[in-house]
Design a protein around this nucleic acid. Structure first.
Lengths: 192, 192
DNA sequence: ATTATCTATAGATCTATAGATAATGC
DNA sequence: ATTATCTATAGATCTATAGATAATGC
């Protein structure tokens, strides 16, 4: 049990370091050597825990399937109330590292043969469905402007991602949280 | 003149090929060899026209400063009317290559020491200002919901970028143009 | 002369495999 | 025994420089 625990700890350390390195250089730009160094291992020592670079990325993704804009308080049919989402955006504004890892990977994932592509495709499918459910819980079948929750969900997701890029590039110029609240205002008042 | 013209043509060919390769592998994943091959040159022959890989990327960016969601019919104080923007989104949905190049570069650009970072930072600053101007032209000082054009501009940009990622990952599942029109509806009717 | 390309190659990296050695658990 | 790490190293690439050669323009 102790050995297992130590192994798990090492694994977690490695995944954390991998997130950092990906934030700095993306997945393609990340090297096993850089990750290894950060946890005090040789590159070959690292490969004992994860057999290939791709396996390491997939482990990171599997581990972090509940990220920032992620699945939310999932399982619960309601999903993310918009108020909670706004808090999440505020929280994210305090941890640029995580946002940067996520955004760099999303950007890379649209290129060919990228190992994160399938992960993101599925994730967005799920997130859109979750968001639609949240909107339905909050607004019912139609939003104030007359749109269906399913039509607005992709916009909600797009706003979250798009604001992250603008904010990462120029944190002084973009207030992610304020902008998101503006978007919520745009959606209109939910029926009481 | 003929020589100059031939040189310019070659240069243009190279830039086109570079865009393609970046769409497929991103900038970090792109190799000079892949670009060279596409225009029938050796990698060293390519370096005669652009002295370094970074110079090649910067040339691409300088050349394409008037991209898709870009500066628009700029100069004109009005900027992009929302209707024209919607057409642009529709047009983009027909050229995934360009959208993919752009999105891959944007994603990479948030990582450290990325040569496109400054380009995108400045570009977004400008695009937000242009969008705010467009919104002001269309709506005046306040949008129907009461927000200032400057508060909505980053959202408009975020929606455009965010939808591109969702669409690139799953074109069947996301109708970029329809989603954008929904967003415009959300903004409300401009005063007549 | 100048421009465009090519061959040769230096110098860095990078991933991954093989096999040895040390540490830990039973 | 099993797990964790290390050294050595193969095998691929990649960017960029040096210098030769061919093509073009004056």
């Amino acid at each position: 049990m102790a050995a297992r625990a130590r192994g798990e700890e090492r694994r977690a350390e490695i995944l954390r370091a991998t997130l950092e390195v990906i934030a700095e250089r993306g997945y393609r730009g990340a090297t096993l050597g850089a990750v290894a160094e950060r946890v005090g291992l040789t590159q070959q020592g690292l490969l004992h825990h994860f057999p290939t670079k791709e396996a390491l990325l997939l482990a990171v993704l599997a581990d972090r399937d509940r990220w920032d804009t992620g699945a939310g308080p999932s399982g619960g049919a309601g999903g993310w109330p918009l108020g909670l989402l706004a808090s999440l955006v505020e929280y994210n504004a305090m941890r640029p590292g995580v946002v940067q890892t996520f955004s760099a990977l999303l950007g890379e994932s649209v290129t060919e043969e990228h190992p994160a592509r399938e992960f993101f495709t599925r994730r967005y499918e799920r997130v859109r469905a979750d968001m639609a459910a949240s909107l339905r819980t909050e607004y019912g079948e139609r939003l104030p402007g007359g749109m269906a929750p399913e039509a607005v969900a992709p916009l909600l997701v797009a706003v979250l991602d798009g604001l992250q890029y603008q904010w990462l590039l120029d944190p002084e110029a973009v207030d992610m949280a304020a902008a998101f609240r503006t978007f919520v205002t745009l959606l209109g008042e939910p029926p009481a």
